[in-house]
């Protein structure tokens, strides 16, 4: 028996919008720790890891660790029917091949339930080690979205270079080249407008912009995004979900063979 009640239902709506374009179907893993997911995109270049910790739910019942396979496009369709202020409850009975999403309006005058068919999904789970990254950048998520969007009108890939002077985003295409440099700026009114650069070692990596653009679908979840990079390793693009968890995207760099 699984029963998860999330008062801030809009978070789940935003999570689905953040991952459904990258991953079409995935297993959600439910344990006493929380509701999580790890899935690769269809071309196996990017990976998304979601965590919604059990403490973040108003009610969290998960009798045994289970994995429920869902089509994310269909799940997003159902969650779109929930109001932004609605409380969302996810329910699944043991052995059932369906999951139920229940939406309650804040004043309890409208209660809807949507039942969705589950799927059997074969998925490969990868072990992602906790790593100290050589460089990490915290910046406004809107700024990162803007940079990815702007650069993808010029080129297909972006080189992200971190030095002590700042972080540089470089692209080039048929029409020319573009460089955007963001410097550390922590002397701002609001912490969410700050850009903070931590650098143990300078790092420079190249990535396909279309994936980074897809990751920015998570922008409504968080004001701040963190980019973590080490030489020859995937970049981690992290959006925190309040204090209950995160969406992390991992993207393999393009490497000179």
């Amino acid at each position: 028996m699984l029963e998860l009640r999330l008062v801030q239902g809009s978070l789940l709506k935003k999570v689905l919008e953040a991952i459904k374009d990258l991953v079409n179907e995935a297993n959600f893993d439910c344990s006493s720790t929380g509701f999580s997911l790890q899935a690769m995109d269809s071309s196996h270049v990017a990976l998304v890891a979601l965590m919604l910790r059990s403490e973040g739910f108003e009610h969290y019942r998960c009798d045994r660790t289970i994995s429920i396979g869902m089509n994310l496009t269909n799940m997003a369709k159902m969650l779109k029917c929930a109001g932004n202020d609605d409380i969302i409850t996810i329910k699944a009975d043991d052995g059932s091949d369906t999951v139920t999403f229940m939406f309650e309006s804040p004043s309890q005058d409208k209660i809807s339930d949507f039942e969705m068919k589950l799927m059997e999904i074969d998925s490969e789970h990868l072990g992602i080690p906790d790593t100290e990254y050589q460089s990490s950048i915290k910046m406004p998520s809107q700024e990162f979205l803007r940079i990815c969007k702007d650069l993808s009108s010029i080129g297909d890939t972006v080189m992200i270079s971190v030095t002590k002077d700042g972080v540089k985003f470089t692209t080039s295409g048929d029409i020319g080249t573009a460089n955007i440099v963001c410097r550390q700026n922590t002397s701002v009114d609001e912490p969410e407008n700050a850009t903070e650069i931590k650098m143990q070692e300078p790092v420079s990596l190249t990535f396909a912009l279309r994936y980074l653009n897809s990751f920015t679908k998570a922008t409504p979840l968080a004001n701040i995004v963190t980019l973590s990079m080490s030489a020859d390793l995937p970049i981690v693009v992290e959006y925190k979900i309040g204090d209950m968890g995160y969406v992390r995207y991992y993207l393999a760099p393009k490497i000179e063979e």
Binding site: H44, V45, E124, L126, P234, A252, E256, E257
Partner: peptide, 14 residues
């Protein structure tokens, strides 16, 4: 030219 590696090649299964 730069080649795109798969994400799985960076992480161990499991």
């Amino acid at each position: 030219a730069k080649q795109q590696r798969s994400i799985a090649s960076f992480f161990s299964p499991g």
